[in-house]
Amino acid sequence: MSTKQIIGVFDDEALLLKATQKLKSHGVNIRDIYGPSADHDLIKNLTRESKLPYLSVFTGILTILLTFAFVYYVTVIDYPLHYGGKPVFAFPSLVVVMYLLCILITGAFTTFSFLTSEKMFPGKAPRLVDPRAAIDRFYLVLERNFNPDEITEWLREEGAEEIIEKETEA
């Protein structure tokens, strides 16, 4: 199925923000915004909070548990060796190991999860609306669930540099 999209091109985030607010108040569905950078307010306004932090916390807790199991197995169960008169299970020493492994694994896993959720991998070709979206223009992509002329009009009012109508495959 192919849908038609209206894309407003902006060169300033401030204008963009105002435009999105206006369009949103009119009930226009904003599909996405492509640009070289993202404004924090824009993100706040348009997107839901990411669930990445929950994943991260979960991974962290799991890692701590697994690491503890690992070091306990190694030092106490598998081959208890005696170092400097310490008991085989010298917990304070293990804390450091658990802590570091936790950070390492959590960090790596979170990054990996991000890449997976974004379907990013080295060598993937970017699907850009326009090359300039990666340089200095913002592309406000709207669904055409309203009268296109009306949307165009609103966009123009809000200072869009250019308005593009595009047919894309869903």
Binding site: D32, I33, Y34, G35, P36, S37, A38, H40, L42, I43, L46, T47, R48, E49, S50, L52, P53, S56, I103, T106, G107, T110, T111, F114, L115, S117, E118, K119, M120, F121, P122, G123, K124, A125, P126, R127, L128, A133, A134
Partner: peptide, 26 residues
């Protein structure tokens, strides 16, 4: 290749900022 197909989507930026915050926090 190294930009891993980054397309500057707002939704990506959302997750991306979260990720950077987590990494920074870690």
């Amino acid at each position: 290749m190294f930009s891993m197909g980054w397309n500057g989507s707002l939704y990506s930026y959302n997750r991306y900022e979260t990720l950077m915050k987590i990494l920074g926090g870690l």
